[in-house]
Amino acid sequence: MEVFRKGKPINKRRVLFVICCCILPIINWLIFYVFANVSSFVMAFTDKDGALSFENFVRFWEELNNPVSDIRIAFRNTFLTFGIIVVTFPLKVLVSYFIYKKVPLAGVYRILFFLPSIIFSVALAMIFQKMISVNGFIAQWVQDWLNLSQPPELLADSRFANTVVILHMLWLTFPGDLIIWGGTFTRIPNDVLESAQIDGVNWWKEFTMITVPMVWPTVALQMVLMFCGIFGASGAVFLLTKGMYGTMTISAWMYLQLYNLTGSPHTSNAYNYMSAVGLIITVIAIGISLGIRKWTDKAFEEVEF
């Protein structure tokens, strides 16, 4: 429906309707996205008093070259976590696939697998911390397995802390995105799958040669979103360790800058430094996401159904 038609009088009520629908989201976007990001860009190039300065970028470079700096550890852990997320991505798709294929008790699992997203992550982290404390069976088991003199403090020991944070993340995200994949797989026409079964196609060939190509737009979009979020890759660092014992990640570092300063943001240049770091990783992330988009466009031809 055209709002402005050439040669025809403007329907004022229609224009009012369009304005009503669009004004709020546009204003919100301009303030909380455009202005916020422009401010952040400017802050990256200024000190806390607003004077032009490149000290934030110099500081970033120095810290990146300092082997024990939080930033360096954060980059290392972020890439490690992201690598694990990439490797486990197909496994999570398979989890949804097997639920869709109705393995025994699939209906029960579909509900139980949502428990981590239903129960507050704060509560889950607290319970998890109690369960892996030195009094718990997990710490005892690690002590026996590695022949340690005493049960380890798994979240306060640099040998284990990062591994435990990542395992915690994998444990809670094991089911993957059941909502997205569940809805996606159910849209695949059954007759295609049935005829494939009649032709004697096994489950792996069905998955890789029929199912995945048919849902490739979803796979591609999820992969692009995954790579776009590369620097957001993190376990529950804030809740479990606050970044100590070698567990810091970029997103935890960013959050801690904000969390530690919200009471007195006027007396430090940490926001400016955070903006500078954000700008640098934005540039890197954009490069990666553009690259992955190109690859996903070429990898499979979209199947229309």
Binding site: A36, S40, M254, L258, P265, Y271, A285, I286, L290
Partner: peptide, 14 residues
């Protein structure tokens, strides 16, 4: 698809 990071401080001020 083009992520922007680091605007937490600016957002908080707004």
């Amino acid at each position: 698809t083009l992520p922007l990071y680091g605007s937490g401080g600016a957002s908080y001020r707004i």
